[in-house]
Nucleic acid binder design. Structure first.
Length: 272
DNA sequence: AATCGTTCCTGATAGC
DNA sequence: TGCTATCAGGAACGAT
């Protein structure tokens, strides 16, 4: 599932590969994958335009075109966005296709149809983006900021890390991985974390995200980068999808539990 | 305001 | 073998 490191990898790939290429049109194969307008609006609006810049906010990819128009993409569970050369086979779950004048194309595919592309003139005014918490790799994110945002919260820390209004970009993989690195149990009430633990958690979040970006993301399911290739951070996971296996830090056995409909992984020996 | 359950979707897998 | 039931999960939404 694409989280911050995966979306960031795609953002960097697309900035390098498709920035400046002029479009001739677009095709919508699944109407539900498009918001903010119909298929004919998309084709008309992108014709003659090109992508000017690619911005990431949390797990959103904002594709800025020239003359102010933007496409806001959320990949959700199984979304993939990739640049293809003429003759490349179209992905089975292709939903929206952008055609460039040079014959190449940008394809949004999405097996489970949870993801979508929204056409908008004001991407930063979208409610879900406006409500979003701090960027964990941004300048404004510090241990103090994290402490402040968790101070009054009584609920368990794990679901709070998944709440995009608390902190942007973490999903099930990196929330579990960060908690393991920080030595904190997912079930711990947020307001029970002492200052030193918040500090550890802050460092763990920043480190795991940076390492995952360096490894081009985790391909546990359908995630692919902007060239359609897999990332390799999944081989470095310490808890996610490792239930029954040995903890790489203490040798304990990794546990999995379903909690509010989300798989949660942890080491009962070195997470307290 | 915070928190919880439900919903969307479909390929993979388990069970019979 | 082939069928059906269950599961995975981000986030919007409604209920409490």
């Amino acid at each position: 599932m694409p989280e911050l490191p995966e979306v960031e990898t795609v953002r960097r790939d697309l900035a390098r590969q498709v920035r400046g290429r002029s479009m001739s049109g677009a095709e919508v194969l699944n109407p539900g994958s498009l918001k903010g307008g119909g298929p004919e609006d998309l084709a008309r609006l992108v014709k003659g335009r090109s992508f000017a810049s690619f911005v990431r906010r949390g797990k959103y990819l904002i594709m800025m075109m020239d003359r102010g128009l933007a496409l806001v993409v959320h990949l959700k569970m199984t979304g993939v966005i990739q640049h293809q050369s003429p003759g490349d086979p179209l992905p089975k779950a292709a939903r929206v296709i952008f055609y460039f004048r040079d014959g190449s194309r940008l394809v949004f595919s999405d097996q489970r149809k949870f993801g979508a592309i929204e056409i908008t003139w004001n991407p930063h005014k979208l409610a879900s983006i406006r409500k979003m918490g701090p960027e964990p790799l941004g300048k404004g994110f510090s241990a103090d900021v994290l402490r402040e945002r968790l101070a009054w919260r009584k609920g368990p820390i794990k679901p709070l890390l998944l709440d995009q209004t608390v902190i942007a970009g973490l999903g099930n993989i990196y929330a579990s991985e960060a908690l393991h690195r920080a030595g904190i149990l997912p079930q711990r009430p947020a307001n029970s974390l002492v200052s030193a633990e918040i500090g550890k958690l802050h460092r763990a979040i920043v480190r795991v995200l940076k390492e995952a970006i360096a490894a081009r993301g985790s391909s546990v399911d359908t995630y692919r980068d902007g060239q359609g290739k897999k990332g390799w951070f999944q081989v470095k996971h310490r808890v996610y999808d490792r239930q029954g296996r040995k903890c790489r830090r203490c040798g304990g056995t990794i546990v999995r539990d379903t909690y509010r409909g989300r798989g949660t992984y942890w080491c009962p020996r070195c997470q307290r």
